[in-house]
Amino acid sequence: MSVMNLNVFSMALRYNIDCTVVLPENIKKDEKLKCIWLYHGGSGDHTAWLYHTPLVEYVEEKKFAAILPNSHEGCFVNMNIGDKFGSFVGKELPSIIWNMFSCISSERKDNYIAGFSNGGYGCLHTALMYPQRFAGVGAFSAGDKADSDFPNDNSKKAKAKLQLFGEGDLHKTEYGLTYLADRLIAENVEKPVIYHACGGKDPWLDKNHIVRDYFLNHNEYQYTYDEIPELGHEWSFWKEELLRYLKFVGIF
């Protein structure tokens, strides 16, 4: 296996940022690997998936590439007041990676995104913003930020939310997942295949159910939902779901 720390200059962010690249050992010359993009959760970074799951072993065993971007606390979106992580992870970084690595396929059918918690929302957001780039998305413990309760009580958390998404109802903005999903239906474009999962003991299970119900009611989307009753908002759940998702897309 090869684990690489990639430090790139981002035009979208206007600064340098790190990203982890994991590649299997025996790649043939001119081979084009399938690629999974893995998004971290709140307080995480580009190393989260590396240290908390057997990702490196999966990459070695099933011969695919994994890219772990960093979005700081930006939820992988263009912040209302702040950095443009959405453009970075959805547009700029994929171009950089596909140009830089001759062993990674740039074809839509070979690229999938997955993530958990903030990154679960984030990967759905990217997949619905850039449906032409990614064939599928695996969102774990992923609520829609438009559905989260937001008391503007001057707390640190409230300030962070304002910076990220702004005030008011997000359902009719590009931060709202159903807004983006509706838009793709209206545009009649090819949609990402959605795999969604939540732990039965996740404190935000109800928010996940809102997302689930939307997609179950919109059969324009190929949608699969998975729930593991005994697990919560934790790595044992995301680790298991990573494996299930890799199986779901036929990598494992």
């Binding site: 296996m1 090869s2 684990v3 690489m4 720390n5 990639l6 430090n7 790139v8 200059f9 690249v21 050992e25 950089i96 140009n99 830089m100």
Partner: peptide
């Protein structure tokens, strides 16, 4: 871009590190 690479070298039979500067 600047890459720090860690991989298992067969020729040396041990993990090795290297740094790579590469245009974007």
């Amino acid at each position: 871009a600047w890459l720090t690479v860690n991989f298992d070298s067969k020729a040396l039979n041990m993990p090795v590190m290297l740094d790579v500067l590469i245009p974007q």
